[in-house]
Amino acid sequence: MANVNMSTSASTVDGTRPLPAAPEITRVRRVARGFKRNWQLYAMLALPLAWLIIYQYVPMWGAQIAFRDYSPQGGFAGLHQADWVGLEHFRRFFNLPNFWTVLRNTLVLNVYALIAGFPLPIILALALNYVGRAWFRRTVQLVSYAPHFISVVVIVGMLFLFVARDGVVVQFLQVFGYEGGGLMEEPQYWKSLFVWSGVWQSLGFSAIIYLAALSGIDPTLHEAAILDGANKLQRMRDIDLPGIMPVAMILLILNMGTLLSTGFEKVLLMQNPLNMSTSEVIDTLVYRLAFDSPFPQFALATAVGLFKGVIGLILLVAVNQLARRLKQTSLF
């Protein structure tokens, strides 16, 4: 999509190419006439476009403070007075004592979440698809979607209560001889607590898309399989699973595109000084440098954020390319 747009806009702006004059004029005239006839459409777009420019593109332009000696006191006016320092802030970021820890945490946490969150919604959808009783099916759906609507603060609040020293999870573990304290203070459990509470929350809602894919499977396949004497397990394995695999692969690949930024709001809430060694990720480092420090370092924080943004963009484009190729070779 991006490439197409680039090329069309380039051919209109590009004046060096020796184009015949006549078509160029009619083209301009046609655009002008189109604009005149559709001016109300542009009027509708005015507000959203103004919003887009102010709150999306102005910040992108402001991201140049990552390359400047900018102090937090200056507004945008101070931005131009700040000297260029090149890649100095990036160098400082790479030389931070916890740089490698933060990078590793970010990757491990997201890969863990991606893998752990992948199979369960598929199993749920496959199982739901063979439920004859409509009320049971609807009950399971209703209950399993519910956590999706609970706020991240409440989820973390529940988690804190459950895994506290006297919480229900620790009580349960004590039956099996566990003798430690609250789990949130133990860095080695932190990632698992983060990931599995996330799986609990998103499981049901993630199954929706697989249920849709299952309902799109040609029923004659099932009928033919039944005539051939296939049982339900064989039909699930040989018809349903292959039927939703393309969707699953595309979702998996697309999710890899956001590999650096899963659940920042939740990570921030779940952090405490004791678990920081396993919980600090790039996004929370940005927050800490800018808003949670006696000396707010806006320029450094912006550089860290920009580093993540650029890597993320590359990942996303690569992954999209991959998904597109897969889509062409797959069933649909």
């Binding site: 402001g62 940005v286 806006f298």
Partner: peptide, 12 residues
Amino acid sequence: LFGGGIIPTYLT
């Protein structure tokens, strides 16, 4: 795909 990040957004 890409944004300015939280600090430039905050400044805006």
